[in-house]
Structures are given as structure tokens and as C-alpha cells.
């Protein structure tokens, strides 16, 4: 089975992930990703109509905790690793246009 993954697809995925790829990298990754997709598409050759999709390797459902408050981290500790902080808040560069 051959993959339908195009160089444009890879370019788009890279843009969404904010990755800047060179022309050579685009070629390289298009080939590699296509191989991975081809490998996965081997599954399509199997008859799986009575197999439920596996979302998780563990057969667990309903893992929940009680609604109890636990201690948070001290703000000094949290902000210590931040490259920029002001008034107890994290400082970030101007970021307009990407809010969901």
C-alpha cells in the first residue's frame, strides 16, 4: 500500500507545530513519515470489524479522585524557573491571534 502523504501535508503539519523545516528536511521527513503511515496502513488489510478500538493499553475506566483540596506550590518556587515574571505573574511576549 502506498501512502498518500504529500510534501504539502508535512509542510502544514510543521507549521501547526511551529517547526521551521528546511527544504532538505521537508523531503527527508515526507519520506520517513510516509513509511510510518504505510506501516500503520498494513492494519487495513486485516478484518477487524469485531475488534473494539484500543484507546489505552490498560483496561481501566473511571479513574477518579475525590474533590479534595491539596497544597499548591509556593509562587516563588513556580516563578523561579520562569524566564520573565512581573507582579507574581509569568511574563510572555506579545501573542496575538492564537487564542482558541
Amino acid at each position: 500500500m502506498s501512502s498518500s502523504l504529500s510534501r504539502d501535508d508535512v509542510e502544514k503539519v510543521a507549521r501547526l507545530a511551529r517547526l521551521r523545516l528546511t527544504e532538505a528536511e521537508l523531503d527527508l521527513f515526507t519520506g520517513q513519515l510516509a513509511q510510518i503511515l504505510d506501516h500503520a496502513s498494513d492494519l487495513a488489510a486485516l478484518d477487524l470489524h469485531d475488534v473494539a478500538p484500543t484507546a489505552h493499553p490498560f483496561g481501566l475506566i473511571n479513574v477518579m479522585r475525590d474533590d479534595l483540596v491539596e497544597a499548591s506550590l509556593p509562587p516563588e518556587e513556580i516563578l523561579r524557573e520562569a524566564p520573565d515574571a512581573e507582579q507574581g505573574r509569568f511574563g510572555v511576549p506579545r501573542i496575538v491571534g492564537e487564542e482558541p
Partner: peptide
């Protein structure tokens, strides 16, 4: 997570990993 759900507190006082 167990951080308190509370409005109007000092910034970043209810956060954890």
C-alpha cells in the same frame, strides 16, 4: 489536580505541576 478552585486570589498561588 488538588489545587483549590477559587476566584480572586493572589496570582499563581493555586498552581501545581
Amino acid at each position: 489536580c488538588g489545587c483549590e478552585n477559587r476566584f480572586g486570589e493572589e496570582p499563581n498561588t493555586h498552581v501545581c505541576p
